[in-house]
């Protein structure tokens, strides 16, 4: 047996164990996590906004930043609400989280069978996840940062030019969510070492409210001027990037206290 085959087999074996036991993220995911803290460095690059005004540049520079390898889990969020009681289900103001907040959890401090410890936490509001990030000494990624990280393919920095990558992303969009959700980070790592950006849950970004797609499908390419100042000049970049439209639509349709069954988050940090 050649060494390369052996290595591949060991990797497969590790992944198999991980899928079964839910602990492999630590083994396989952390392999790309060179700092050992569950984050990867996303190198400086650029982001091509989906929708921009005619005065805005086609490409926006994104400085290097650090991003969690995988979405935040129920176990991690439980530790947060234990330490910060104002974010418990019974205490949070409706202003900051709607009544569905942590609705999958069996109890106030008990995620239970519908929210396994290693699965991504969902039904969390923007206000709550921002508080989590602050408590962790981190922040939420911006739209530009998140899209920059998610634009990478499995093997290339530009997923759009990697054969089969876009179809894998599309396939996720068409599949119903498994219940309960799988282990966070069990998906294949992208070229930057981040996992499950496009294969597990939707994720909050810090500036989701900069996404200005209207509810009117006929107005989406030229936004309603009386509703959005300056939006009359907005135009779309690449109509074929369907998943990017879905993400923009999702971001434009939520409010900061909304909680959604498949909307989770991960944190970022400025290096």
């Amino acid at each position: 047996m050649r060494p390369t085959t052996a290595t591949a087999l060991v990797r497969c074996w590790l992944r198999g164990i991980g899928a079964a036991a839910g602990c492999a993220l630590a083994a396989a995911g952390w392999a790309e996590d060179r700092g050992g803290d569950g984050m990867v460095l996303i190198p400086a690059g650029e982001y091509r906004p989906l929708i921009r005004s005619k005065d805005e540049p086609e490409r926006v520079a994104v400085a290097a930043f650090r991003l969690d390898v995988r979405p935040v889990t129920n176990a991690e969020f439980l530790a947060f609400v234990r330490a910060h009681p104002q974010w418990r289900r019974s205490r949070v103001s409706r202003l900051f989280a709607d009544p569905g907040y942590l609705g999958d959890w069996a109890g106030e401090l008990e995620p239970g069978p519908r929210a396994p410890a290693d699965a991504p936490v969902v039904r969390v509001s923007w206000f709550a996840v921002r508080a989590f990030a602050q408590a962790a000494g981190k922040r939420l990624p911006t739209t530009a940062e998140w899209e920059r990280a998610a634009a990478a393919g499995f093997t290339q920095a530009d997923g759009a030019s990697e054969p089969g990558f876009q179809s894998t992303v599309l396939a996720w969009l068409t599949r119903p969510n498994p219940e309960p959700l799988p282990v966070a980070g069990s998906g294949r790592a992208n070229a930057f070492g981040a996992r499950d950006l496009l294969s597990l849950v939707w994720e909050w970004v810090d500036d989701f409210n900069t996404s200005m797609v209207t509810g009117e499908s006929r107005a989406d390419s030229g936004l309603e001027r009386t509703l959005f100042c300056g939006a009359g000049a907005a135009g779309a970049r690449d109509p074929s990037d369907f998943p990017a439209f879905i993400r923009a639509g999702f971001r434009s349709s939520v409010r900061a206290n909304y909680t959604v069954p498949n909307l989770g988050f991960r944190c970022a940090q400025t290096p």
């Binding site: 005004s53 005065d55 540049p57 409210n209 900069t210 200005m212 509703l227 939006a231 409010r255 900061a256």
Partner: peptide, 24 residues
Amino acid sequence: VQDLAMLLGVKYKQDARGQFSHSN
């Protein structure tokens, strides 16, 4: 400012000229 905009459901974004697109 971001908190208040979030509470009101107001979207805003600064463009390259320093003008803001925003919900009316």
